[in-house]
């Protein structure tokens, strides 16, 4: 079942500890995106619980790009490395819409800059479905121009809820350093 919450991890697994420990400017929460294929990768959200001090995480299937060449503007998946989050908006209304998290620009292997990158889904500004193109049709919608995409409605909803519960409960344009690590 696409879109279901894959795991809520109570164990302090080494990978998550690494992700939250480095680099030193990291927050107490972080997204991690593991690149497997363009339409079947993994987006995780990990956070340190303020009450018990344990690290929890949740993960969802996600996609990025139509190609594994990160230097292809508009086509390649995200280059690996840390990204700052530069804002979160609930009702974004441009060529992508709805709940979005904006990411900082990032270089690929030859220095090409990838820009205007987001985590988002296919939905209307008010979280409904406008067909086409702002509706979720299935696996094909994991393809993107480079942005990280998760399924509508359950995965984007769960991601959004956890971000506000355990990440930052803020909207607008702000900077969260090293909020996402992309690897693979």
């Amino acid at each position: 079942m696409t879109g279901s919450l894959r795991a809520v991890c109570v164990a302090i697994c080494a990978a998550v500890v690494v992700a939250l420990a480095a680099p030193p400017t990291a927050s107490a929460w972080r997204f991690t995106f593991y690149k497997h294929t363009n339409i079947h990768s993994n987006l995780s959200f990990a956070w340190v619980d303020p009450y018990d001090g344990l690290v929890y995480s949740a993960s969802w299937r996600a996609g990025s790009g139509v190609s594994t060449n990160a230097c292809w503007v508009d086509h390649g998946w995200l280059p690996s490395g840390y990204y700052d989050m530069t804002g979160h908006v609930d009702h974004f209304d441009d060529r992508i819409k709805g709940r979005v998290w904006r990411l900082s620009d990032k270089r690929c292997s030859n220095g090409q800059l990838r820009t205007a990158l987001f985590i988002h889904t296919e939905e209307s500004p008010w979280h409904g479905q406008w067909c086409e193109p702002w509706c979720w049709d299935g696996d094909v919608d994991y393809y993107s121009e480079g942005c990280i995409k998760v399924a509508y409605p359950y995965d984007i909803g769960a991601l959004h809820a956890r971000y506000h519960a355990y990440g930052w409960n803020a909207h607008g344009w702000y900077t969260a350093p090293n909020a996402l690590y992309v690897y693979g």
Partner: peptide
């Protein structure tokens, strides 16, 4: 890049 390389702050470049 592997997840372990995160410790060194590596990126694709």
């Amino acid at each position: 890049l592997t997840l372990e390389q995160a410790e060194a702050g590596m990126e694709e470049f």
